[in-house]
Amino acid sequence: MEEQVKQRGKLILAIETSCDETSVALVEDGRKIRANIISSQVPLHRKYGGVVPEIASRKHIENVLPVLEECLTEAGVTLDDIDGIGVTYGPGLVGALLVGVSAAKALAFSLGVPLIGVHHLEGHIFANFLENEQLEPPFVALVVSGGHTALVHVKDYSTFELLGETRDDAVGEAFDKVARILGLPYPGGPEVERLAKEGDPDAIPFPKALCEKGSFEFSFSGLKSAVLNYHNSKKMKNEEINPADVAASFQSAALDVLVAKTMQAMEVCGVKQLVLAGGVAANTMLREKLTEAAAQKGIAFSYPNKILCTDNAAMIACRAHYLYEEGRFADLHLNGVPSLPLGKR
């Protein structure tokens, strides 16, 4: 009798519960998504104007097994087919992280397969490997989301140099705050972008905080305050405000800084490949501006599709696959780390 040979590659199951999406995914050989189920809690948090940690944690414990089951069903595999378990262990909301970490540890232990702890932002960067099969390091990644704004030099699959990050607000946070000033619903990013399409980006000269030349740090709290001051002073003088112009001018100021710093980083690192990652990577204007700037300098530029920009477990599974290849496993003491630094071991 001929022995049955496993026809498939290495199968990693990953869990992501760092903020307000419960996600479970199965990825084969690091690049092929077999299933990527995301259960979003956005409608639940909308009335609070932001994510409420305790409510998010409660929803994760309700959702994690149904989402796991849906993922297995969609991929047509059973738990016995899985070679390793990846999980986001930071950064994020600690109570939310712990639901995923606990479930992942229980799965790995019960199935007798390795456990792999994944940094959430490294996951966002690795979403690009799922989108672009030809992509290989080295490259520079611009990571932009509600919690993070960072430039990272990805030298190979395991060496990340943090070039700089935000000193205060993340860019996504600035979008959310400006949305609140303009009376737009949560989450504000897509709302500001929609409104900005109808406005003039040069109408109001908001400051562009470039910090010092050669520094890759960002600052968005000044820009947010400038929008707030503009809004308040207009109101005080009873002058009319054009919200579309405010949105467009704010967005343009914020994105111009991101593009300028990113292009400086490309030069300093001397690489010819740029990738975009994180929730704000879904912003069409940012994609267009970076595409244009990259083309001028002969730089290859790629970004994930919108589903892979949001928090999802497929990107975590992709990152976990490469950690698995290097034998970098976590033990059963793995804890959630709310402010896990990037690139440190």
């Binding site: 944690s57 994760h60 414990i61 994690v64 712990l98 606990s102 479930a103 540890k105 229980a106």
Partner: peptide, 19 residues
């Protein structure tokens, strides 16, 4: 403790499910 309960229950539920 809310967090304590969730750690215990995520562990227990996932083990029961997997086994």
């Amino acid at each position: 403790s809310f967090t304590g309960l969730r750690i215990g229950m995520a562990t227990a539920k996932t083990m029961a499910y997997a086994l």
